[in-house]
């Protein structure tokens, strides 16, 4: 039987000052399980975080928020698949 997907770890950084969004995201990444995602909700592109993610083997996808989340960025982060 297929294992149920673990819920995503949400970091809501809408009211956080730099560098707290990065601090909280890195803490969440330490707890990340295979197949799980960290979703960072933030009102600006966290460019310094992208540098850290790329250098530490994480993949990320940027989604523009819609509806209540208009003007926000949702950054979906997961571990990069190991090379075959």
């Amino acid at each position: 039987m297929r294992e149920a997907k673990l819920p995503d770890l949400i970091v809501d950084a809408r009211a956080m000052l730099p560098p707290e969004p990065m601090e909280r995201t890195l803490e969440a990444l330490d707890q990340l399980q295979p197949g799980q995602e960290v979703v960072l909700i933030i009102p600006r592109q966290p460019v310094p975080l992208y540098d850290v993610l790329r250098n530490n083997g994480y993949a990320y996808r940027v989604e523009n928020g819609e509806g209540d989340n208009t003007g926000l960025f949702l950054i979906h982060i997961r571990q990069m698949a190991a090379p075959a």
Binding site: P18, P19, E20, M22, E23, P48, V52, N55
Partner: peptide, 19 residues
Amino acid sequence: PFVLWLYLQPRVTKLPPMT
């Protein structure tokens, strides 16, 4: 603090919060 935190971040394990 931000400039120093960014410098330390990749170099130090268990970095204390910037504040």
